[in-house]
Nucleic acid binder design. Structure first.
Lengths: 251, 251
DNA sequence: CCAAAAGTGTTCTAAATACACCCATGA
DNA sequence: TCATGGGTGTATTTAGAACACTTTTGG
């Protein structure tokens, strides 16, 4: 990391990012490889790390997101703090963290290691490359096939799955952060089906989609398919935000 | 505090509790007086404090709730972490905290004071007395008349107001943690009206209440009023929980 | 001409809203 | 007997769910 020498880590508070996407029609989470001192891989974990001493939590989340994926303009949502003392009981995890953050974490504690982590959530496109090298190797792992992860990362991901559904209900905009600029009706429907893990009726979904006035049909169609060419739609973020403000006024 | 000598504070993470109730028909927040070293009052703040080194966040929240109000069985919900470095820019606030926690906080930091706080929320009955003496003087303050508070407590309370409405929608049970064991239909309606800050139609609310099968009419009536005696209802928590489990299965 | 997905309406049910009058009680 | 809030039903609108067939296209 470029900033490593000019910033001091706060060894008591970390941020973990649950980046979700859909890969091979499965809701998946971005995990990064973890290495020991000799550069041997020792499993997968959520992208995350200690905050800098002078850094806001949200800023730390965006920094870590960016370091892991190169993404900058994704909408991140803080969804929960995890602070059980049990999180850091595993010495191996802590030793790894010392190594990764180039900092003696043990010394910051008189007695017990204790790190509270703030978990963030985003839905994103899966086709981004890591822009930085801290995480040379990132993997999209389907949520029904997670490895055992360090700290309480398994628990964090499980909670995040519930959270993403809630969030998609309240803020449909986040669904479009997964989709490309132009998408077909069935791509949008399939996205909802995978996030909510249930089939949705084609005609009812079509009605629902028509009710989203910020989903604009274009004149473009997707061609080269072995069936009728579907129309492309686009998400109008400006319109969405205007409507949101209007709705909030009624509250 | 009894435990002060046996537990070590973690000077990097605190918990703040937003306890809400209804006082004089206004949604109100419990604030406690803050004193300087000479015992002079220097304004109001949210009940909150540093976590113990070996204490889970939820446990810390319940401890602080209990110290402030004597309450033990209230349902607390973690709703947000606040971690801007700006929170602790005001030296006076930090000096006060050192005094209140009997601990040199400054020394725990190499450079800048930095405390991340996890905010918790509860709705409760306003008629509890403080069981402990850390907060000798607690005050219910209506949310539309908040004083300027230390750290970012004003912001925390503002966010909490949105949160309590969300929460009451998702978990109607919390509304009954404000009400006494027996309550009339109009007391329940008035509670909703005050939480959501809007009038609700009497007949529609009655229908809605009848749909809450866990709100059980009793044979008791409230007497001594200058009008028809209203029936008392009670909240059946066991039934509520059973129904909740059934509903969750459908998800 | 066949396989595969696109596109399209109606009916039913449930939930939320709007709306007004008589009743029981204590003062 | 009056003032005060208690208690009650219907009609309308809205949102969501169930449900099936024809069209377009490439192979």
């Amino acid at each position: 990391m470029k900033k490593e020498e000019t910033h001091l880590f706060n060894p008591h508070v970390s941020v973990d990012c649950v980046l979700m996407s859909i890969v091979d029609h499965k809701l998946s989470v971005l995990l990064v490889e973890r290495w020991d001192k000799r550069g041997e891989t020792i499993g997968l974990k959520l992208p995350g790390g200690l905050i800098y001493q002078e850094e806001d939590l949200d800023d730390a989340a965006y920094r870590i997101l960016n370091e892991a994926t190169g993404m900058k303009r994704v909408q991140l949502k803080q969804f929960r703090a995890f602070g059980s003392p049990e999180r850091t009981r595993n010495k191996e995890d802590v030793l790894w963290l010392e190594n990764a953050s180039n900092q003696k974490i043990m010394q910051a504690y008189q007695e017990t290691i204790r790190i509270v982590t703030i978990a963030y959530l985003a839905l994103c496109k899966p086709d981004r490359k890591a822009a930085d090298t801290e995480y040379e190797s990132m993997h999209w792992v389907p949520i029904d096939n997670l490895p055992r992860m360090p700290f309480d990362h398994n628990r964090i991901v499980n909670e995040a799955v519930f959270e993403i559904r809630d969030w998609a209900d309240r803020e449909p905009a986040i669904v479009f952060s997964y989709l490309p600029k132009k998408f077909t009706a069935s791509e949008l429907r399939s996205t909802y089906e995978i996030i909510f893990n249930r089939k949705m009726d084609v005609r009812n979904f079509d009605k629902r989609m028509k009710a989203m006035s910020y989903v604009i049909p274009t004149e473009d169609v997707k061609e080269g398919l072995a069936h009728r060419s579907p129309r492309y739609y686009r998400f109008d973020k400006t319109l969405y935000n205007k409507l949101k403000i209007k709705l909030n006024k009624n509250k």
